[in-house]
């Protein structure tokens, strides 16, 4: 098991290491906790407020654990043009999976598109979305 200290040590030599550290912390622990923010701040000689300011600025970072699988459905213009809004009730009609909006996956010619972990999905329709939500 990699500890926070290991992550901090790994990035010690980097210029501007805060974002790489936060990404690794979130990947390892699922979120960036209050305690982690204090430790990171101490290691980088920043205030806790500065670290919290960065964590809260970026959509990717969570301060609470999300226990459900996360499903990111693209809601940007190109996916809207291809009908994603009609799929939103399908996505929100269940509670097992946490559905979050994402703005563009670069799959704009084959939308509606979604990202689950690092797996991409395209050409979603109601049936495919329902099956996908059941499988994650």
């Amino acid at each position: 098991m990699i500890s926070l200290a290991d992550i901090l040590a790994e990035h010690a030599e980097r210029e501007g290491p805060l974002l790489p550290i936060l990404h690794d912390v979130q990947k390892m622990f699922g979120h960036v906790s209050e305690e982690a923010m204090r430790e990171i701040a101490h290691a980088l000689n920043l205030t806790r407020a500065e670290v919290y300011g960065v964590v809260s600025f970026y959509h990717d970072f969570r301060t609470e654990v999300e226990t459900r699988p996360v499903f990111k459905l693209c809601r940007a213009e190109a996916c809207k043009a291809r009908g994603v809004e009609a799929l939103v009730p399908v996505a929100e009609g269940q509670t097992r999976v946490k559905v979050e909006p994402i703005y563009c996956l670069g799959l704009c010619s084959v939308g509606p598109a979604a990202l689950v972990g690092e797996t991409v999905h395209a050409r979603l329709d109601s049936a495919r979305l329902t099956a996908l939500l059941a499988s994650v």
């Binding site: 940007a76 213009e77 190109a78 703005y103 563009c104 670069g106 704009c108 010619s109």
Partner: peptide, 11 residues
């Protein structure tokens, strides 16, 4: 940081 919808050339 290719965030514009409808762009994928960078990707």
């Amino acid at each position: 940081d290719e965030g514009d919808s409808a762009t994928f050339a960078d990707r």
